[in-house]
Amino acid sequence: MATGGRRGAAAAPLLVAVAALLLGAAGHLYPGEVCPGMDIRNNLTRLHELENCSVIEGHLQILLMFKTRPEDFRDLSFPKLIMITDYLLLFRVYGLESLKDLFPNLTVIRGSRLFFNYALVIFEMVHLKELGLYNLMNITRGSVRIEKNNELCYLATIDWSRILDSVEDNYIVLNKDDNEECGDICPGTAKGKTNCPATVINGQFVERCWTHSHCQKVCPTICKSHGCTAEGLCCHSECLGNCSQPDDPTKCVACRNFYLDGRCVETCPPPYYHFQDWRCVNFSFCQDLHHKCKNSRRQGCHQYVIHNNKCIPECPSGYTMNSSNLLCTPCLGPCPKVCHLLEGEKTIDSVTSAQELRGCTVINGSLIINIRGGNNLAAELEANLGLIEEISGYLKIRRSYALVSLSFFRKLRLIRGETLEIGNYSFYALDNQNLRQLWDWSKHNLTITQGKLFFHYNPKLCLSEIHKMEEVSGTKGRQERNDIALKTNGDQASCENELLKFSYIRTSFDKI
Results as ranks from 00 to 15, higher is better:
185 I>E: 04
77 S>E: 10
302 H>M: 05
327 L>P: 01
293 C>L: 03
151 E>C: 06
114 L>S: 04
246 P>L: 03
145 R>P: 02
270 P>I: 12
115 F>W: 15
180 E>F: 07
307 H>K: 03
69 R>E: 07
288 D>G: 11
188 G>H: 13
294 K>L: 03
205 F>G: 10
319 Y>L: 03
217 K>A: 15
196 C>S: 12
206 V>S: 13
205 F>H: 09
165 D>I: 06
176 K>G: 04
72 D>H: 03
303 Q>S: 11
69 R>T: 06
263 R>G: 00
196 C>E: 14
134 Y>G: 12
50 L>Q: 01
216 Q>F: 12
159 D>P: 12
314 E>T: 12
149 N>G: 06
178 D>Y: 13
45 T>K: 11
131 L>R: 01
157 T>R: 13
183 G>E: 14
108 V>P: 00
184 D>C: 15
168 E>R: 12
68 T>I: 02
138 N>M: 11
128 L>W: 01
86 D>F: 00
239 C>K: 00
170 N>H: 05
234 C>S: 04
269 P>A: 06
32 G>M: 11
317 S>L: 07
247 D>R: 10
323 S>P: 14
193 K>I: 08
119 A>R: 00
198 A>Y: 04
302 H>F: 04
39 D>T: 08
178 D>V: 13
258 F>D: 01
48 H>P: 06
160 W>P: 01
46 R>A: 15
78 F>I: 12
225 S>G: 06
66 F>Q: 06
306 I>V: 08
203 G>C: 05
263 R>T: 00
60 L>T: 02
234 C>H: 01
67 K>S: 06
223 C>G: 02
139 I>W: 00
42 N>D: 10
225 S>Y: 09
47 L>V: 05
328 C>P: 00
242 N>P: 10
45 T>R: 15
44 L>W: 09
326 L>S: 04
124 E>C: 03
329 T>Y: 12
136 L>Q: 05
298 R>N: 05
226 H>L: 13
265 V>P: 00
67 K>A: 09
235 C>T: 00
321 M>Y: 13
156 A>T: 06
70 P>D: 14
216 Q>L: 12
42 N>P: 02
114 L>N: 04
321 M>T: 09
160 W>E: 01
116 F>A: 11
53 C>K: 00
37 G>Q: 10
324 S>N: 11
142 G>D: 02
91 F>G: 10
328 C>A: 00
165 D>Y: 14
236 H>R: 02
236 H>V: 02
61 Q>E: 02
100 K>T: 06
134 Y>A: 07
226 H>S: 07
289 L>R: 12
243 C>W: 01
303 Q>L: 08
267 T>I: 03
149 N>W: 01
234 C>G: 01
211 T>M: 02
159 D>W: 14
249 P>N: 03
109 I>F: 01
328 C>L: 00
269 P>L: 01
298 R>T: 12
296 S>L: 11
65 M>K: 03
87 Y>N: 01
236 H>N: 06
135 N>I: 00
77 S>M: 11
216 Q>A: 15
276 Q>S: 12
28 H>K: 05
285 F>K: 01
215 C>W: 15
227 G>W: 06
307 H>T: 02
235 C>W: 01
44 L>Q: 06
270 P>E: 02
207 E>Q: 08
205 F>W: 15
158 I>Q: 07
98 S>Q: 02
270 P>R: 03
250 T>P: 00
253 V>L: 15
31 P>T: 11
120 L>E: 00
161 S>E: 13
153 C>V: 01
204 Q>H: 13
175 N>T: 13
140 T>L: 06
255 C>H: 01
193 K>Q: 15
187 P>L: 12
194 T>L: 15
69 R>F: 09
150 N>E: 07
249 P>I: 01
68 T>A: 12
44 L>S: 09
336 P>L: 07
88 L>I: 15
258 F>W: 08
56 I>P: 00
52 N>P: 13
257 N>E: 04
54 S>A: 06
205 F>V: 10
309 N>A: 11
57 E>A: 08
58 G>W: 01
75 D>C: 09
256 R>N: 10
29 L>P: 13
83 M>G: 02
197 P>I: 13
164 L>G: 15
214 H>L: 11
101 D>P: 12
267 T>R: 01
41 R>A: 15
182 C>M: 14
97 E>P: 04
229 T>Q: 07
114 L>M: 07
333 G>I: 04
70 P>M: 11
34 V>L: 06
309 N>K: 04
60 L>K: 01
128 L>S: 01
243 C>R: 00
198 A>I: 12
79 P>C: 02
180 E>S: 11
162 R>E: 15
195 N>E: 14
96 L>K: 02
248 D>F: 02
158 I>D: 05
319 Y>A: 09
52 N>L: 04
159 D>V: 05
258 F>Q: 12
33 E>N: 05
75 D>E: 13
276 Q>K: 08
121 V>D: 00
90 L>W: 03
304 Y>S: 03
109 I>W: 00
204 Q>D: 14
65 M>Q: 08
105 N>K: 07
105 N>R: 08
203 G>K: 07
335 C>W: 11
65 M>I: 04
145 R>K: 08
106 L>H: 02
261 D>C: 01
186 C>G: 10
245 Q>W: 09
238 E>N: 11
277 D>F: 04
188 G>Y: 09
83 M>Q: 08
60 L>Q: 00
74 R>G: 02
247 D>H: 15
112 S>W: 11
214 H>Q: 08
326 L>C: 03
192 G>C: 13
120 L>M: 12
72 D>R: 02
175 N>D: 15
292 K>P: 03
